[in-house]
Design a protein around this nucleic acid. Sequence first.
DNA 1: TAGTTTTAAATGCACATGCATCTTTTTTCA
DNA 2: TGAAAAAAGATGCATGTGCATTTAAAACTA
Lengths: 144, 144
Amino acid sequence: MNDLPDETTILAWARLVLAARSVLGAVEADLKAAGFPPLGWYDVALEVRRAGRAMRPVEIEEQLLIPQSNVSRLLDRMVAAGYLSRQPCADDRRGFELNLTLAGHDLLAKMWPTYRDLIQRHVGGKLQPGEAETLAAALGRLLD
Amino acid sequence: MNDLPDETTILAWARLVLAARSVLGAVEADLKAAGFPPLGWYDVALEVRRAGRAMRPVEIEEQLLIPQSNVSRLLDRMVAAGYLSRQPCADDRRGFELNLTLAGHDLLAKMWPTYRDLIQRHVGGKLQPGEAETLAAALGRLLD
DNA sequence: TAGTTTTAAATGCACATGCATCTTTTTTCA
DNA sequence: TGAAAAAAGATGCATGTGCATTTAAAACTA
């Protein structure tokens, strides 16, 4: 239970940090240049749409691994911008229910074509055939 | 030049963002709990030690993919903490030369055993045999 | 060489984040 | 039930970040 990482593991870790920073930086910059809000907004909106029902802030927290206080204020901004509605939760008076507004659905629809191209440019296009598969598998393990 | 990412690529991208956030968050939290400075400090110190010579701030920028103004202030903090020295550059009067102090070398030495264990716990220990290799390879492509 | 352009680095300012704490409500369990 | 513990969310405060601008020096270029 206290063994040491081998050189390859250390390399993978170093590259994980750098690659995420690099690609995320590029995607965020390109999204902003195209006039869109930060990626985090898309992530939240997508999460809510995928759920297909009202979501609680605490669920956003867990799904996106964002600290609670950051979620709270990110939701503030998105509600203020009109992409989300936040209403008191019926069966739990501590909480709130989040729903996508029409503008929120629209944001997803408008951003996706650009975002999709950016994923291809900064990720897909750089990988060899089959590498996306092994990359996704390995990253999946890190999330368990 | 405008093809679309396949589902696997999109999954790899999503997991890249989440896995980096997850592992980085865990490592940073554990380092802090052990009384150490943020990982960025280690990265800078390691970069300078690896160079084996005085480094310029702009080199740190390029190697670590950190925005210029952030580098400037990160160096401020590390100099203030006594881990780095920053002195005017002889042959380029716009710039500065960075060197590790004794305390800086010491920081690397003191942090490494803990950091190394964290890499094993949060990365190495979660991967299947051989997976670190393919992970490092795929991430390397994203950095080109 | 003089004038323009590019580069290195710092900084002011607005905004985002991390952390601890607080309030309210729900859950647990004795 | 009733008290203690845990959970949801907001918020104050200090700190970090992003962005644009500024200063100074170096590199081009005509």
